[in-house]
Amino acid sequence: MSVEARERRQPWILLSPALGAVTLLLLVPLAFIVVYSFWLRSAVGADTPGFHLDNWQRALTDPFFRYILLNTLKIAAITTVICALLGYPAAYFIARSRGNKLILLLLLMLPFWISYIIRTMSWINILGSSGALNTALMSVGVISEPIRMLYNEGTVILGLVHFLLPFMVLNIYVSLEGIDTNLEDAATSLGATRWQAFLQVTLPLSLPGLAAGGLLCFVLGAGTYITPLILGGPRDAMFANLVFEAIITQLNWPMGSALSLLLLMVLGVLVAIYNRYLGMSQLTKGLG
């Protein structure tokens, strides 16, 4: 075998375990879901195999589903914007600090050591009617009755921001790290104030990181069902809750499959748009 042929084969040999795992654990189940989405649920006994468009028709036309889908995208968008606004200064601070960067990054990763569900539930102890905040306010005498703070869209967004902020900070941090600090110094020496130098130089150069963090927050936020389940009220369901409802509660696997594929496609389109304009390489940079 020639050297070239061997060199060409080597990456595939190294990739094959991962490709095998992805095929077996992701692509095959996905194929099952695609097939399932065309089946029909029967009230009694097994679902009816076949090629029926009923689930898809309902998924695409039902106004309730559409409302939830739009609401999901709206909540994900708000969460992403808040994460960007809170995350950027934090990332900037870490990137520009001397010496203790590693500790700051470690602190940022610390929440990941605790289960996401536990972290989400912790808000109940803070915002609940006998939670820390209400108790404190009542003991100081600001209020006499506990305020109802939980189980609305606001707390869902709060929970999502809590969950997603580190991803945003990390992505922005990585792109800020790659920017030479001499650039800002050069800009100020040329007459720009620190703020102008930031707007003219650092911000535009860090946009890829901001976009990558934004995409990640949006996709993860739009796909969540745990946060609205724990922190939302009955009207704050997100799209993944519909899937959960269909599959777990109603045992309507075909409908659940169609809905989950619909969400996958909507988010897939967003990722494709992102990839078209910014490229996937930025995203992998931020994850590494």
Binding site: D180, N182, D185, A186, A187, T188, S189, P204, L205
Partner: peptide, 20 residues
């Protein structure tokens, strides 16, 4: 006097041109 009011020209070893 802050740097942006000093009217100085600054050149760095790594050039520091604005890449964008």
């Amino acid at each position: 006097v802050p740097i942006h009011k000093r009217n100085l020209g600054l050149v760095f070893q790594n050039y520091a041109l604005f890449p964008h």
